[in-house]
Simulated scan of single mutants.
Amino acid sequence: MEPEPSRWEFPSPETADELGLVAVGADLAPGTLLAAYRAGLFPMPLGRTDKLGWWSPDPRGVIPLEDLRVSRSLRRSLRRYRITTDVAFGDVVDACRTIARPHGWISPAIRDAYVRLHRLGWAHSVEAWSEDGELVGGLYGVSIGGLFAGESMFHVDRDASKVALVSLVGRLASGGVPRLLDVQWATDHLRTLGAVEVPRSEYLGRLRQVVSLPAPPWPGDGWLRSGRPTGPPDHPG
């Protein structure tokens, strides 16, 4: 569902400062969020203040779908977890929010904004469940056409978030449609999975090519293992 258009107009990402900050202010309405992602921006508060920053880093972190790195140990972990999509979006965001990390940014306002976006069909989660039905890992992000903009991931069991990412890549790679997996910054952790840095100009060019393409199917298509549907959806707990 397309929300009401944003009442804000964002500057060009090319005007970003050396840290990638493009603008400060605006709001977290669904239309504003979608306009930002379509323009190559994403929101994140400025430090520990209530001020909302809009970012477009240069270089930009992406994971080429064909270059995802799956180690031998991760392949073994793929058999340990059950994977779903959009079964527990709010729980995934809450877990990402509460996990200890030095630069946590998921405020209550941001949490509520992405839950609203999820209810409109634009934000999605991939969940990893233990055999006894506990949520032990996952990720969430925004899907617009051929773009999936990853926002955050978490795990409480070994490799659980990585397994969720493998399943996400399998989903994005299906259907023969060019897609772009944006991870914002290529951290050391994401580099082990194949993340690379590309210049902002290259990212924006690829974004323009994919953002109007068909989005991958999301809810209601069953359990996933390594991105493949394996049966009817069934909440594990």
Rank of each mutant, 00 (worst) to 15 (best):
I63R: 06
G53I: 03
S130H: 04
S161F: 09
V183A: 07
A160P: 15
V156C: 14
A16P: 01
V183M: 02
R111I: 02
H103R: 11
G61K: 04
G176I: 06
V163M: 10
L224H: 05
A160L: 11
S201L: 12
L193A: 06
V70M: 00
Y114A: 08
D234L: 15
L68R: 06
P11Y: 03
T15I: 02
R97E: 04
E197M: 10
V87A: 15
M153P: 11
V24E: 12
E134L: 13
L207F: 04
R76I: 03
V196T: 14
G205T: 15
V87M: 14
G176L: 04
T230G: 07
G61D: 00
V92P: 06
S226E: 15
G53K: 02
E14P: 02
G133T: 08
G138T: 09
G137Q: 08
R7S: 15
P5A: 15
G176E: 01
A128E: 01
R206E: 14
Q209N: 14
P233V: 02
L172K: 04
R179K: 11
D27A: 04
V156R: 15
P43R: 13
R111Q: 11
G146R: 06
L34D: 00
L78F: 06
S226C: 10
E134Y: 00
F10S: 11
S130V: 03
T230W: 12
V92T: 04
V136E: 03
E18K: 11
T15N: 01
Y140K: 07
E14S: 14
G90W: 03
R75H: 12
A173N: 13
L135Q: 01
K51T: 08
I63Q: 02
S107G: 07
H189S: 12
E127N: 10
S161V: 11
D182L: 12
Y114C: 10
R101P: 07
G47S: 05
V87I: 10
E66V: 06
S174H: 13
P108S: 00
